[in-house]
């Protein structure tokens, strides 16, 4: 639902098991294209993930800091270890970020809702990274943790287990 990917691509790049594993194991998320404007989608995602105790590292060509975190002009300048590279930039730029994500040793490449780059996916996969495409990191966290449910959204979570709304 709500993806331009084929069923086979969805199985590969939007599998709930992969999404949950990435959300569960990640601590540090480098956000490429995180906006310095408070009402942009990327800021909604970043502030939400910060409130869920993820550390956000902004990657921005000009900004010094965003949401209280030092910003870096590119992924390779980030001094800390990065678990997920989350991309808010157009598909044509994504293969470069896939290469850089592999070079800095990230575990996963995440392309946000509406961003599809099979080329970037292939590069990241060949380097052993988990790949998620055309999905929003906030929505996916909210889907499994239950927040999205409070807004009447269809999370697809079906379970009779007690209190199992977690990523």
């Amino acid at each position: 639902m709500n993806s331009s990917l084929s069923a086979e691509e969805q199985e590969r790049y939007q599998h709930p098991d992969t999404i949950r594993r990435v959300l569960r194991t990640a601590d540090t998320i480098a956000m490429v294209g995180l906006s310095s404007s408070p009402q942009k989608a990327s800021q909604f995602v970043a502030t939400y993930l910060q409130s869920k105790d993820y550390r956000i590292i902004p990657v921005h060509p000009k900004a010094d800091s965003i949401l209280g975190e030092t910003a870096y002009p590119d992924l390779e300048s980030v001094p800390d270890s990065v678990d997920v590279v989350d991309v808010f930039r157009p598909p044509r730029e994504c293969p470069t970020y896939a290469e850089q994500a592999a070079a800095i040793g990230a575990d996963a490449l995440w392309l946000q809702l509406g961003i599809v780059s099979p080329e970037a996916a292939t590069i990241a996969e060949e380097n052993g990274l988990d790949v998620i495409m055309d999905r929003c990191m906030k929505m996916e966290h909210g889907r499994f943790r239950g927040g999205m449910h409070w807004m009447g959204m269809n999370t697809g979570v079906i379970t009779a287990k007690r209190g199992r709304r977690q990523v």
């Binding site: 909604f44 939400y48 909210g142 409070w150 807004m151 009447g152 269809n154």
Partner: peptide, 25 residues
């Protein structure tokens, strides 16, 4: 609207959210 959650039952409610998600599903 940067955080998901309950504010006031005019906007959302945990029981109503079950109805909403179920009918949406």
């Amino acid at each position: 609207l940067k955080e998901y959650g309950n504010i006031y039952t005019r906007l959302n409610n945990p029981t109503t959210a079950v109805f909403e998600e179920r009918v949406a599903s």
